[in-house]
């Protein structure tokens, strides 16, 4: 990286960070209840006990905004790593079965073992994500022709469809179980408890740090395995590290918000348009832009049909699937 580029990147980074702060402030300023900006500011800077407007800002909106930021960053970085390692522009935790696996495991954990709000939720999610990823990869590489992008995506869809069928079978005979799970299954940031988030926080941080540490090698890997090996990269080790980071990030995101589709697909592509193919830039920018994106999507989810809120996951899919379609048309 030469000096000009470094300056450019640094400027861009700070600009994006500023954008995220603005998105955060916007998130806590709007909602079903109209609260004057002055009151919002007061709630942030000088909160008073017993003022419900301050409670709304500090206890209802701010945690949710923080969840949105974390989940957005985690999923986008996971998507970026997957796209780099598999050299597949359509790779993403949702498309390649990790999210379905994590969601399934969380449902089992909460529904059967009553683990809601405990340290085990992210752990369950991680095991589920790992099993999902391994399953998808095994099926795809067992198919004739090997793990091509198409085969991976199809086997991801098959694994997702299978887990969804098992979930449906479990909820089909009981209307109230269905009521309790239908919002969760569509991916939502509403009503998530702080306890789960705090348990997931180390996972978020660990995953992001790991991603930043291997970003340099991912750049080499994205250019092809031979190139990477030629540059002295231990491809197997990096692949395992990347898989670990992706699983950890997906698990953290799913245990907080359920499955939010297509975030990991949209953001890295958007970022790549501006910063090129260096993963030392793609990873941090994906994190920051992804955080802002999910925060904005969550604002829309909360205000479009106010006073009713819609699931964040439904909105991310409605926005992300057209992006997927566009990518297929343009890139393939």
């Amino acid at each position: 990286m030469n000096a000009t580029r470094t300056i450019c990147a640094a400027t861009g980074f700070w600009l994006c960070l500023g954008g995220v702060v603005l998105a955060f402030l916007w998130h806590v300023s709007v909602g079903a209840k109209a609260i004057p900006l002055g009151t919002v500011w007061q709630a942030i800077t000088a909160p008073q006990d017993g003022v419900f407007d301050h409670v709304v800002v500090r206890d209802l909106r701010m945690p949710r905004a923080i969840f949105a930021l974390s989940v957005g960053a985690a999923l986008s970085v996971a998507g970026a790593l997957m796209q780099g390692v598999t050299r597949n522009p359509l790779a993403e935790p949702g498309i390649l079965g990790l999210m379905a696996g994590a969601t399934f495991a969380v449902i089992i954990g909460i529904g059967w073992f009553g683990l809601a709000g405990t340290a085990y939720v992210p752990l369950f999610a991680a095991i589920g994500a790992l099993i999902g990823a391994v399953l998808v990869w095994t099926i795809a590489s067992a198919a004739p022709g090997g793990a091509t992008p198409l085969t991976l995506i199809l086997s991801g869809a098959a694994v997702g469809g299978f887990l969804y069928a098992v979930e449906s079978a479990a909820i089909l005979l009981n209307e109230d179980t269905f009521r309790n799970f239908r919002v969760w299954l569509s991916g939502s940031l509403a009503g998530r408890d702080m306890a789960t988030y705090l348990w997931a926080l180390p996972w978020f941080i660990g995953g992001l740090i790991a991603a930043l540490l291997i970003a340099h090698q991912i750049t080499a890997l994205a250019m092809g395995e031979e190139t990477a090996a030629g540059l002295g990269v231990d491809t197997f080790k990096i692949k395992v590290a990347a898989l670990g980071a992706v699983v950890v990030l997906t698990a953290a995101a799913v245990s907080v918000a359920g499955p939010l589709g297509f975030v990991g697909l949209v953001i890295p592509h958007l970022v790549r348009l501006f910063v090129g193919s260096d993963y030392r830039l793609i990873v941090p920018f994906s994190a920051i832009v992804g955080a802002g994106y999910v925060t904005l999507v969550d604002i829309a989810a909360r205000v479009v049909l106010a006073p009713i809120e819609i699931s964040t996951g439904i909105v991310t899919t409605m926005l992300g699937a057209p992006m997927f379609i566009w990518l297929v048309r343009v890139k393939l």
């Binding site: 209840k33 209802l60 009713i308």
Partner: peptide
């Protein structure tokens, strides 16, 4: 009375007052 579009949506907790 609360301006909800459908019977099946959930009212935001912000409007609990």
């Amino acid at each position: 009375d609360l301006g909800m579009l459908t019977d099946n949506g959930n009212l935001s907790f912000e409007l609990v007052e």
